[in-house]
Design a binder for these strands. Structure first.
Lengths: 210, 210
DNA sequence: CTAGTTAGTTAGTAATCGCTAACTATGGAA
DNA sequence: TTCCATAGTTAGCGATTACTAACTAACTAG
């Protein structure tokens, strides 16, 4: 019993360690013993901060959801156009996954979702919020005359939504050996170029309010 | 000891049962006991057919890879054009995942891949072969004048490759509650419409050999 | 300086995991 | 009908799992 940390500090430390172990071995291989050892406390000590392992997973999910939203907000600001925001937000999501590879393992884990409904709902909610964000940005792009409205904004959002987990799957399967946001940006550029542009560029003041 | 089956029949039965259990609870929750119980034999009986659990996973992977290829081949035949083949093949992949939901759980499982390198390679090889198939079809579409060649066939294939796992992720997270190939077809149609068409339609005999 | 709160430890629990050795009995070939 | 290869069983192994009870000692408010 060397150093003694505050409960909130130790909780954060345990969550962080859990994310690292998930990235290495997958969620189901993360034991309370492994977490405790890496943190530097005993296995029983983990249960002082999380009454059951299930609560540890919920804390991990809460961190992931919060961090994702924080990154979208940062990326969504200060862009030239709604289309530029779309690109920035999607790339930010890929950067998040590359920085925290545990995320994809957690989202894909059938084991966790099958027996922890609350956890599945948390990630589903995150996906829905991302979808809503993209839909809004797509609508803005159309209202500002950047994109044609022949494709519904919801469909544009759906296409973009599949993009990150799709590429992340390949990235994970290939041993995380390429730069995810970099390759993602290249493909995203191609995809965005393909989206039909509006015939005439609306002048300032012409576009509807978002 | 009621009925006694041939080893090959029993092996197939065990693999099939394993796939069902993976779809329900995830790969890591599939125990030899659970498989044995559902098959109707004792736990130790499983090890007569698979010397170690690892070998069971390899057999499962072999089935998945084989079945996927079989479906691509069927879907790739008898289409009006290379572009129609692309669509058919991608939809077939989605039908496969919907019919056998274990597939996505297996491909996404960090646990299996982290400690069974051979398994990861099997699925990576499958992805690579699908990528090669799509690249070839995209090239055909360009050579026949169906698509413009402003986008490299490899990039078209990459975009299409991310599509299935991307949508499957959403499908899985949402509790498999929508029809995967149906929604996939809708979005795929939109995506394919976006791909730049060749300016002039080449006449028969005009196009290069694939 | 003291006393209460609480982070952390020691030492266990029952349950479950993959796997094995030794035995049993089934079904096809002769 | 006999015989034997082998599918399948019984019983149990050591290791690991999440989790608990009882204890210890480090911070901190008074």
């Amino acid at each position: 019993m060397r150093t003694r940390k505050s409960s909130s500090d130790r909780k954060a430390e345990i969550v962080e360690t859990t994310l690292a172990l998930v990235a290495e071995h997958g969620p189901e291989r993360v034991t309370t013993q492994a977490v405790a050892t890496r943190v530097g406390i005993t296995q029983a000590g983990v249960f002082r901060h999380f009454p059951a392992k299930r609560d540890l997973w919920l804390a991990v999910a809460a961190w992931v959801v919060g961090e994702a939203q924080r990154r979208w907000e940062v990326a969504g600001r200060l862009n030239e156009s709604p289309l530029a925001s779309i690109k920035a937000v999607v790339i930010a999501q890929m950067e998040f996954i590359q920085d925290t590879p545990a995320v994809s393992s957690l989202i894909f884990s059938r084991e966790l979702h099958a027996q922890n409904e609350e956890l599945r709902q948390a990630f589903l909610g995150m996906a829905d919020r991302f979808y809503a964000l993209l839909t809004g940005l797509a609508k803005c792009s159309q209202d500002s005359g950047e994109l044609s409205d022949v494709i519904k904004p919801e469909d544009i959002a759906s296409l973009l939504l599949t993009f990150t987990p799709g590429l992340a799957t390949r990235w994970s399967l290939g041993g995380r050996s390429f730069n995810l946001p970099r390759r993602g940006e290249r493909l995203l550029d191609i995809m965005l170029t393909c989206l039909p542009k509006a015939n005439r560029q609306l002048r300032e003041g012409d576009h509807a309010q978002a």
